[in-house]
């Protein structure tokens, strides 16, 4: 037990070993230790959703999880799910529908929606809105995001 923690985890499929200050949260670790700056920091108190990442198959708030707690975990960030093409149809729909403007909320929003599409593949517009209700977007007013989910789903079903 120390003010520092040695951790080994898998990030975007690669094994990573680091010694971190125990107080370092997971999103700061990803951004400043690993250079994975696609995950953003918007509030640091768990409300805005910009730091949403996937840990052990589920989305979590990167600011409310310690890096030390990710010992042994499998972490995926926007960079990883982009490179594997896992969410490519969704990203394409976001671009086509202009469901992102400044793009700061987008990585967290996309990871949240990826989980929605897995857990509730037939979600109604209202359910989509509910599922993303913990992800703040100041630019779009959300309608384009809801539309993009529907577009991605349609294209996925037709492909």
């Amino acid at each position: 037990m120390d003010m520092y923690s040695d951790i080994t985890l898998t990030v975007n499929g690669e094994s990573v070993t680091r010694c971190v200050e125990s107080r370092t949260n997971l999103v700061d670790f990803l951004r400043y230790e690993l250079g994975l700056t696609g995950s953003h920091v918007g509030c640091e108190h768990g409300v805005c959703g910009a730091c949403t990442i996937r840990m052990d198959g589920r989305i979590v708030r990167g600011c409310l999880t310690l890096a030390a707690q990710a010992e042994g975990a499998e972490v995926w960030t926007i960079e990883g799910v982009s490179e594997t093409n896992e969410i490519r149809p969704l990203q394409k729909a976001f671009v086509e529908r202009n469901a992102l403007q400044c793009g700061f909320c987008t990585p967290g929003m996309l990871l949240t929606i990826a989980e929605l599409m897995e857990r509730k593949p037939d979600a109604s517009r209202e359910e989509i809105r509910e599922f993303i209700s913990g992800n703040f977007c100041r630019c779009t007013g959300y309608q384009a995001i809801v539309d993009a989910v529907e577009i991605a789903r349609e294209k996925g079903a037709n492909s």
Partner: peptide
Amino acid sequence: PRPNAPRLAEGRGTFVDDIE
């Protein structure tokens, strides 16, 4: 479509805090 949107949708933007 916006030329800079695909980059942002992949988390490859460069916001100020990304600069070291």
